[in-house]
């Protein structure tokens, strides 16, 4: 018998600290596998965010810098200037990337920084206990939108891919999901493509991964997947928004 699936060498042996059923783990796996498939000739430098993935430096088996909240694209830009031949990626959540770090995100894309961002959109602040995120859906309950988010009271969710796709510096912008096997396979292909674009020097690439937060959504992992499929993809349609 041959091994048809085993853990990527680009993941350490440290067990993930994520809650049961949280799709951060799947995102980590596909990111590590996509990086591994690049062949390992180039060095890799990651940037970890603030949020649930703050400990990402414990999991990815490469050089990593842990950034201040929202600043990962700026940190990655600084790294890339010093190490232009290395693969530089940032792994960020929705609060980190789309709220406090929006300026860093938009301007890294506008500059066409040759970096890759893996953007985890689970529509909530997980680490701090379930507060409203910039991507929280209308009607979705959080600890700071307890009756459900309303446009009148809390404003509207932000669609990052659609926004970044308008920028000339962006080379590959895609939104994927992890709600079933087929989407997981597609998500990995998109992440691999984003890294390929960086290797080819095409500029800024970002893959938004629709993800779950069973703990703070108050759902089972399986029902969370259904929520992504039935509710999130309505607001955040899957697809490739920019490809040059």
């Amino acid at each position: 018998m041959q091994k048809v699936f085993q853990k990527s060498a680009l993941l350490t042996d440290t067990p993930f600290h994520y809650c049961p059923g949280c799709t951060h783990g799947i995102s980590h796996r596909i990111t590590a596998e996509a990086l591994e498939e690049l062949g390992g000739k180039q060095g890799i430098i990651g940037v970890a965010p603030v949020g649930c993935a703050v400990f990402a430096y414990n999991y990815f088996n490469c050089d990593i810098q842990q950034a201040a909240h929202g600043r990962a694209p700026a940190v990655a830009s600084g790294i890339k200037r010093v190490c232009p031949d290395k693969i530089v990626f940032a792994y960020q959540g929705d609060g980190d990337l789309a709220s406090i770090g929006m300026a860093e995100t938009v301007h890294a894309a506008a500059r066409g920084e040759n970096i890759t961002i893996i953007f985890i959109n689970n529509a909530i602040y997980g680490m701090t206990g379930g507060q409203m995120a910039p991507t929280t859906l209308i009607g979705q309950k959080s600890t700071t939108s307890q009756g459900g988010r309303t446009a009148a009271l809390q404003g509207n969710p932000i669609r990052i891919c659609e926004m970044l796709a308008t920028l000339d510096g962006a080379s590959y912008i895609a939104r994927v999901s992890l709600h079933d096997l087929k989407s997981v396979v597609a998500a990995k292909k998109a992440v691999k493509k984003a890294f390929d674009y960086q290797v080819a020097g095409k500029g800024f690439s970002l893959v938004e991964i629709l993800s779950t937060c069973p703990t703070n959504w108050g759902m089972t992992p399986e029902n969370s997947m259904e929520y992504v499929k039935n509710e999130m993809t309505k607001v955040y349609p899957l697809g490739v928004f920019k490809e040059v």
Partner: peptide
């Protein structure tokens, strides 16, 4: 070397963090 006019002072200092962490004199 390299120069970036950052989008803000906040971003500029974090670019310094990244570059210094990667070993550059930033």
């Amino acid at each position: 070397g390299a120069f970036i006019q950052a989008e803000s002072e906040v971003s500029a200092i974090n670019m310094v963090y990244g570059a210094a962490g990667a070993g550059g004199r930033a």
